[in-house]
Amino acid sequence: MSEMILHHYPSSPFSEKVRLILGYKHLSWRSVVIPMVSPKPDLVALTGGYRKTPVLQIGADIYCDTALICDVLEHLQPMPTLYPEPSKGMARTLAHWADNTLFWTSMAYNMQPKGLAQIFGNAPPEVAKAFIDDRKAMAVGLARLRPADAAAAYKSYLRRMSDMLDDLPFLLGEMPSICDFAMYHPLWFTRIRASVLADILNATPAVLDWMDRMAAIGHGSMEKFSAADAIAVAAASMPAPLHDTHDNVFQDEHGIALGSRVQVSSESFGPEPTEGELMAATRMHYTLRRTDERAGTVHVHLPRIGYTLKAVKTA
């Protein structure tokens, strides 16, 4: 197996989710720091359009979205598991809620003027403006809470999490599950990156203690790596054979045959499409083959849940 390369940036909440999982599974990885906002030419050379953070690269295989990245890491390093029985289904369901509802609630709270002033306090005003404009472009059609409404919801969610921790060190048991990592990263951003607003956490000391246990997991063994080197790794590699994947059933929900030219896009945030030849449509993910002049031939993998597939019309 080629070494894992994570394309991320330090203040990205979803990257913190994956960095902690890499630590939990005692994995070594290479770190490529990408820009917070577009343009991201080196990342797009690998993904073909997808520009959300983070992206996991293994040779010429490019994995997008943390829901899929977590499944890949679980397959490569099954223990300790992210999906313990008998709460596997509950853990996945709560993680999905956390990545969508809890995350956007926390971000609406964090991005009020007081939070923005801290997050971008040492940067020129144009940096904050570029970030806000970039995220607005990525969030077309996405409903956004006002900070006051977000604060009320955030407090309720924190109380519910505290209730889950009454008799347990982690949200669903004695060990962390995907639920813990998905619920942690939005709170991490409040506590670490928007700490001027972190008083909201003080009413739930059990949650703060749990956050300390999660933070203590660490990020595993990391080595700095350049974007140019990551692209060179892709160009020198071949995508892994699809028959070696753990989920190789063709599940046709669209009437689109394998080998068709297609686009896959996020349903909501970050709708930029990735276009390529449909190589797999399993029950969990899509695989697109595409060729880039720098990265060579790569397979880009995206989840099914939260993404749309459509055929590209040819002349």
Rank of each mutant, 00 (worst) to 15 (best):
R213W: 06
V264E: 07
T297D: 04
A198E: 12
M279P: 00
V300S: 04
L197K: 06
T282Y: 12
F225P: 12
M279Q: 07
G220S: 04
M284F: 07
M238H: 14
L258C: 07
Q263N: 11
R191L: 14
A232N: 15
Y286N: 01
A280C: 10
M284T: 13
M183A: 15
S195T: 14
A228I: 05
M164L: 01
I256K: 03
A203F: 04
L171N: 06
T245I: 01
P205W: 03
I178P: 11
H185V: 05
S237E: 03
A227C: 06
D247V: 02
V298Y: 09
A203N: 11
I231N: 02
N248G: 05
I178M: 12
A240E: 14
R213D: 04
L278C: 10
V196N: 10
H299M: 12
D247R: 01
E174A: 13
L187R: 06
A194H: 10
L278R: 07
A203M: 05
I178F: 09
D244T: 15
P186A: 02
T274A: 12
E267Y: 02
H285D: 15
T297G: 08
D167A: 11
M284K: 08
M238P: 00
S268C: 04
S177A: 05
E275Y: 00
M164G: 03
D180I: 02
A194F: 04
G259Q: 13
E253D: 15
K224L: 11
I200P: 00
S221W: 04
D199G: 15
P241K: 03
D209E: 08
F269D: 14
D212Y: 05
H243V: 15
T274V: 15
P169V: 01
T245D: 11
A227E: 14
A236V: 05
I192G: 00
R261Q: 15
A215C: 04
G220N: 05
R283C: 14
C179G: 04
T245N: 13
S195P: 08
L208N: 09
T190Y: 01
R213S: 07
H285I: 07
G296D: 14
V249R: 09
A280L: 15
T282I: 10
E174R: 09
D247L: 01
L242W: 06
L242V: 13
M211K: 00
M214G: 04
M284W: 00
D247A: 03
L278E: 14
V249L: 07
A240T: 12
F269G: 08
R289C: 13
H285G: 09
A257T: 14
A232P: 13
S260P: 14
G296R: 15
L258S: 09
A295G: 00
M214H: 03
R283E: 15
S265M: 13
G296K: 13
T190E: 04
L197C: 08
G270R: 08
